[in-house]
Structure formats: structure tokens, C-alpha cells
């Protein structure tokens, strides 16, 4: 081995010992190796008991998010060379329950994601003979940025409000709600208002902005949340002053998942 770098991993093996502990490994400092490559090397050559998630190795699947030197990062897109001379400290994503080693429990996030109904909700029933549901480039542009979210949960790790308030629905879920709210084919705003206006909804955000800084896909959840606050405040006053004018939930049933 020519050049090496030390990797400190926060291990958690609940069947062996109740508390997490640190374990250090030394891996080759290969050019262009990501932190994920180092973990794969450890598992293949040094310690087969190490557990972590990964899948695509190209910044698309959103599985390999971990804390690298205290910052949430996709480990496939974070390179060893940037951390010379080391050591590099790797921990499971902050603000999540840890199941084992670097593997977090995603159930809470999945539940929150589902609560904002991130799918197309349409008023009219359409079938295959109706053909394509065409959109202009401008209509696509209105929400395209929010479609780039890969559900990697880095924004949940970066967000102090998520850490303080377990009810907060969180940055990615609100950005994905907005992805459908701004889609001209969708008419599910009313159903989403019920979650986003409630306790734990968008107004729990205190506008810190860490989610947008952490986002590897430049979705800008902060911007999505701020835009929602303006829309949601209008809806709140409508419901307060003239409930009949408020966006009535027409339909929650006809569902097409397009992404």
C-alpha cells in the first residue's frame, strides 16, 4: 500500500453492545475514490461486519447519505483526496434513528413523505384513449427543479428544526408537495394544505436554509418552503374569513404516480 488514509466509523451493533462505538480502519488513498469506495474496501477486505446502504454509486439513488466529518453528504460523491491527511469520521445521518452501523430507519421519513400526497391528483378521470397530457416548456419549468429530489434525506440531517421537532414534515416532503402543487395537471393543493398548514407543517420551518446547502441536487427546499408559506398564508385567511372560497378538496382518489 502506497498512501493510506484513516477512516473512523461510528459502529452500532445492538445485538453485541448497547452503545455505539468508534472503529478505525486504514484504507488505500486511491485517486478518485469516494468515501463509499473506502467503505466497500473495508467490507471486502478488512471487516465484513460493517453495514451501510448504497446502490447506484453515481449520485442518483440517494441511498448512501452519511455524515462525513459532521456534514451530511452522499458518500459516492465525496472524495477521499479532499480529506487529506485524514482521518475521516463517518457517522449515520443525523436526526434519524439508527438501526445498525451506518444504516438509519427511513420509516419516519417515508410516512412524512406520504402525508403530503406527492403524486398527481386529478379532478377528472382520464383513460388511455385521452392520449398524452401535454405540457408547455413553461408549465414544466414551473416545477421541474423540485422533481430533482432523490429522497436522500441529507436535508433532514442538515435541518436543525427536524432535530428539535419530530413532528416537522421536513424539507424534502414540502419540496415534493410543491412539485405537484405547481404542476398544472394536478389539482391536489387542497389535500396538501391540510398537512402543510397544520402543526408540523411548513410553518414550523424557521428559515435556517441548511437544507438547501446540503441538497446534492440543488432542489432548494428552502425556496420551496418559503413559496409555500406565501400560498399557505393566503389559504389560511380564506379558510378563516370565507371558508366557502377556500380550495375545497375535490378529489383525493384518482391517483397517477408519474415519477
Amino acid at each position: 500500500m502506497d498512501k493510506t488514509i484513516k477512516i473512523q466509523v461510528r459502529r452500532y451493533l445492538p445485538e453485541k453492545q448497547p452503545d455505539p462505538f468508534w472503529q478505525e480502519y486504514e484504507v488505500p488513498l486511491e485517486p478518485k475514490w469516494g468515501v463509499l469506495d473506502a467503505l466497500i474496501y473495508i467490507k471486502d477486505h478488512l471487516d465484513g461486519s460493517l453495514s451501510y446502504r448504497w446502490s447506484c454509486h453515481m449520485g442518483v439513488c440517494g441511498s448512501c447519505g452519511m455524515m462525513v466529518n459532521g456534514e451530511p453528504a452522499l458518500t459516492c460523491a465525496t472524495f477521499l483526496e479532499e480529506y487529506q491527511p485524514g482521518p475521516i469520521r463517518i457517522e449515520p445521518l443525523a436526526n434519524f434513528k439508527v438501526l445498525r452501523d451506518l444504516i438509519i430507519d427511513t420509516d419516519d421519513f417515508m410516512g412524512k413523505l406520504k402525508s403530503v400526497k406527492p403524486w398527481l391528483i386529478t379532478d377528472e378521470k382520464r383513460d388511455i384513449t385521452d392520449g398524452e397530457n401535454r405540457q408547455t416548456p413553461a408549465e414544466l419549468k414551473a416545477f421541474k427543479q423540485y422533481t430533482l429530489c432523490i429522497n436522500c434525506m441529507l436535508c433532514y440531517s442538515a435541518c436543525p428544526v427536524v432535530g428539535l421537532n419530530e413532528d416537522f414534515v421536513g424539507p424534502a416532503a414540502i419540496a415534493l408537495a410543491q412539485r405537484y402543487n405547481y404542476d398544472n395537471r394536478d389539482s391536489g393543493n387542497a389535500a396538501r394544505h391540510d398537512t402543510l398548514l397544520a402543526h408540523g407543517g411548513a410553518f414550523d420551518c424557521t428559515l435556517i436554509g441548511e437544507c438547501s446547502r446540503a441538497c446534492p441536487k440543488h432542489v432548494d427546499p428552502t425556496g420551496a418552503i418559503q413559496r409555500y408559506k406565501a400560498d399557505g398564508a393566503m389559504e389560511y385567511w380564506k379558510r378563516l374569513i370565507w371558508p366557502k372560497a377556500a380550495t375545497a378538496p375535490k378529489n383525493d382518489g384518482i391517483v397517477k404516480q408519474i415519477d
Binding site: L197, A198, G200, F203
Partner: peptide, 10 residues
Amino acid sequence: MSSSRNNDPF
């Protein structure tokens, strides 16, 4: 999530 009205939008 609590069912009481959230006044934060106000």
C-alpha cells in the same frame, strides 16, 4: 400531528 388549528400562518 396535532389536530388543533395551527395559528402560525396567522
